[in-house]
Design a protein around this nucleic acid. Structure first.
Length: 526
RNA sequence: GCCCCCGUAGUUCAACGGAUAGAAUAGCUCCCUUCUAAGGAGUAGAUCGAGGUUCGAUUCCUCGCAGGGGUACCA
C-alpha cells in the first residue's frame, strides 16, 4: 500500500526526490504521512507549507485518496479511499498465505547465504548462540518471502586448535595429563570423558583424534537442539576440514590474493592488505611457522561460497567476534562476494533475581540454549529473542522468563490467530459481499494494519530489522483483539456479517503469515 | 590507550531526523447469559548530564558520566 501512496505522490512532484512515507499512529495525521515538503522546500527555496499546499492541491484530484491535508509545519497527510482499502482486503483473501510475498525477476533475484550459529562443537549451545540462531532463521525466512534463493549454513570448525584443546581437556579429565587453565571444564566434558573411558585411554596421546571424536558427538547434540527443539533447520553443515581445507580452498584463496597483489611478506609471515578495506591493520595469512591462519581458512570459506554461485552472505556473529568484522568484509570483497553483511548480536547477560551470573563455556557455567527451550518453550523463547534489536544488550532473567512464559507476547499474537480461526469456523462465507459496510473505527483500523504487512516485510528484508516484524505482529494482534471485543460477526445483520467475515479471514492470513516468517507455531486452539 | 555497542516508565524492550516518546510486565479501577477473559476499557509512570547542528533531536556531532565487548603470527 505504501508503494501506491509513493506512486501517487510522485505524480504531483516534478523533482527527482526520494519520498518517504510513514504510518502515523494517530488517525488525525492520516493513514499515511510524508515529510517530502520539508525536503522540497530547500530545493525550491520556499517554505514547506507552500510546497505542501501545492502538492495537496494536485493529489486531491486523485480518486485514490479520499482526503488529503496539510498540517503544520508542512506535513502532508493522506487518507486512502475506502474502495482502495477494500480492493487490498480482497487481495489478501485471494493471495492467502502468499500475501506479502514477492516474486523476483531474473535480474533482481539474489542467491544469498545466511551463515549463523556456527558454534564450535566443543560443547552445548549458549543463549547467545540461540539469539543468533533465531535471528538467522528469521532473516532467511524473510529473504525467501521476498523471492530470493537462500541457503542456511552452519560452518563447523572441526579442525585446529579448539579441537586439540577439547581433546586435551578430555584426556586430562581421565587423569593422563595434568589439567591446564585454558581447558574446557564443563560437566559435559567430564560426562563425555567418563562414558568413553577406554577409548580415551587407547588414544591418550592423540589429542586431535579424541577431540574430533568428541566434537562429532557434540555437534550431534547441537543439531538436535537446533532442529528438534528450536525448529531451526540448516541446509548445509559445512565442514572446515572437508569442504575448505581438504577441498583446497585455503590455497585457492591465497593464490587469488597474491595474484592480485594484495599480499606481502614481513617478519617471516605472509600478510593480507586488509587496511585497504577499512581494517585498522593488515592481517596474517600464513604464520612464520608456515601454517595458515584461521582467517585464511575463513577467506577460503568465502571463496567457496562465491564459487558455489552466491552473490552474498549474511553472517551473524556473537559479540566476541567484533574485531573480526573488518577483515571478513575485506575478504568478502576480495573474493567478489558482494552484498555481504555481518550482523553482530550483542551479549545476552544472564541474570538471576537481579544479580548477574557470569557465563563461561570454558568454565562450564551457563544455561544452555536447550535448557531454555525446555524451560520456557520454543515459541516464547523465539519471540522473546526476536523482539529485541541485535544491537541491544539484553538482560535475561531466567526466573522472570519462566514466570513470563505464560504471558509472553507470542501467546497474545497466537491467541488473536486462534480467535480469528474460531470465527471462521463458526460462520459461513457469503458469495456476495459489500465491503463498504466495514466502516466502524475498529473495522478501518484493522484493515489499515493488515495492509501494512507487505510494507513491513519489504523493509525488514532491506535492513534485517527482524524486531520490527515481531513488533508488527504484536500491533496486528492488538488491533485484532480490539476489533474482536467491539465488533461481532455472527449475530449481526447478514450483509454486515458477510463483510466482517472477509475482514476476519484477511486477519487470519496476515497473522498466520507473520508467525510463519518469524518461525513461531500457528496453533488452532489454545 | 584505541575501536565498536549500549544508557528511555519500577522492570524488560520499541521509536527510517518528524507531530502528544510507544508496547509489554508490575500497580490501581472497571468489563464474561453472545464468535475462547491467554481478552478488552480506564488510570498512573521515562529520554544519564552539558553544549552544538536545524523548521524540528531519543535519534546526528563534541565533551563528560555509567555499563558491555573487541583490540594475537589463537581459534
Amino acid at each position: 500500500m505504501k508503494e501506491k501512496v509513493v506512486k501517487a505522490l510522485k505524480k504531483a512532484i516534478s523533482e527527482e526526490i526520494a519520498i518517504e512515507v510513514s504510518v502515523p499512529d494517530q488517525e488525525e495525521f492520516g493513514h499515511y504521512s510524508t515529510n517530502v515538503a520539508f525536503k522540497l522546500a530547500r530545493v525550491r527555496r520556499t517554505s514547506p507549507l507552500t510546497v505542501a499546499e501545492e502538492i495537496v492541491s494536485i493529489i486531491r484530484k486523485e480518486k485514490f485518496f479520499f482526503r488529503a491535508e496539510v498540517a503544520h509545519p508542512g506535513f502532508i497527510n493522506v487518507w486512502i479511499s475506502e474502495k482502495e482499502l477494500a480492493k487490498e482486503l480482497i487481495s489478501i483473501t485471494k493471495q492467502k498465505n502468499k500475501y506479502g510475498t514477492k516474486k523476483q525477476i531474473k535480474t533482481t533475484k539474489k542467491k544469498m547465504q545466511v551463515e549463523f550459529v556456527s558454534a564450535n562443537p566443543t560443547g552445548p549451545l549458549t543463549l547467545a548462540n540461540g539469539r543468533g540462531g533465531f535471528l538467522g532463521d528469521a532473516i532467511a525466512n524473510v529473504l525467501i518471502s521476498q523471492g530470493h534463493t537462500v541457503e542456511r549454513e552452519y560452518y563447523v570448525n572441526d579442525t585446529g586448535n579448539q579441537v586439540q584443546t577439547l581433546g586435551k581437556s578430555i584426556v586430562a579429565n581421565c587423569g593422563f595429563i595434568p589439567f591446564e587453565e585454558n581447558y574446557y571444564k564443563g560437566e559435559y566434558v567430564k560426562a563425555w570423558a567418563e562414558s568413553h573411558a577406554s577409548f580415551v585411554e587407547k588414544n591418550k596421546n592423540k589429542f586431535e583424534a579424541v577431540g574430533e571424536c568428541a566434537a562429532k558427538d557434540f555437534l550431534k547434540m547441537i543439531k538436535e537442539a537446533l532442529e528438534k527443539k528450536a525448529h531451526i533447520h540448516f541446509d548445509r553443515y559445512t565442514s572446515e576440514k572437508i569442504n575448505i581445507h581438504e577441498a583446497g580452498y585455503v590455497k585457492k584463496a591465497f593464490e587469488l590474493f597474491s595474484k592480485i597483489g594484495k599480499t606481502y611478506e614481513a617478519d617471516g609471515a605472509v600478510w593480507l592488505k586488509t587496511t585497504e578495506y577499512a581494517d585498522d591493520k593488515d592481517r596474517v595469512l600464513y604464520t612464520s611457522e608456515k601454517t595458515p591462519t584461521y582467517f585464511l581458512a575463513d577467506a577460503g570459506h568465502y571463496l567457496e561460497t562465491k564459487k558455489r554461485g552466491f552473490s552474498g552472505k549474511i553472517l551473524i556473529l556473537g559479540p566476541d567476534h567484533y574485531g573480526y568484522v573488518a577483515r571478513i568484509q575485506a575478504a568478502a570483497e576480495l573474493v567478489g562476494l558482494r552484498e555481504s553483511k555481518v550482523i553482530i548480536t550483542q551479549a545476552v547477560r544472564l541474570v538471576d533475581k537481579g544479580s548477574e551470573v557470569k557465563m563461561s563455556k570454558r568454565k562450564g557455567q551457563f544455561v544452555t540454549f536447550a535448557e531454555l527451550m525446555e524451560e520456557v518453550g520454543m515459541d516464547a523463547a523465539r519471540f522473546f529473542f526476536l523482539m529485541i534489536s541485535p544491537d541491544s544488550h539484553m538482560d535475561f532473567d531466567i526466573g522472570l522468563a519462566k514466570e513470563r512464559s505464560v504471558k509472553n507476547p507470542v501467546f497474545y499474537v497466537q491467541y488473536a490467530l486462534v480467535r480469528a480461526g474460531s470465527i471462521l469456523e463458526k460462520t459461513k462465507k457469503q458469495t456476495t459481499v459489500d465491503l463498504s459496510l466495514l466502516s466502524t473505527k475498529e473495522d478501518i483500523a484493522l484493515i489499515r494494519k493488515l495492509v501494512e504487512f507487505p510494507d513491513v516485510l519489504e523493509s525488514v528484508s532491506d535492513d534485517f530489522g527482524i524486531h520490527h516484524l515481531t513488533q508488527y505482529a504484536s500491533e496486528c494482534a492488538k488491533t485484532f483483539h480490539n476489533f474482536y471485543e467491539k465488533e461481532k460477526v455472527s449475530g449481526e445483520e447478514k450483509k454486515i456479517a458477510g463483510a466482517r467475515r472477509v475482514l476476519v479471514e484477511a486477519s487470519y492470513y496476515v497473522l498466520q503469515n507473520t508467525l510463519q516468517i518469524l518461525g513461531c507455531s500457528r496453533p488452532k486452539k489454545m
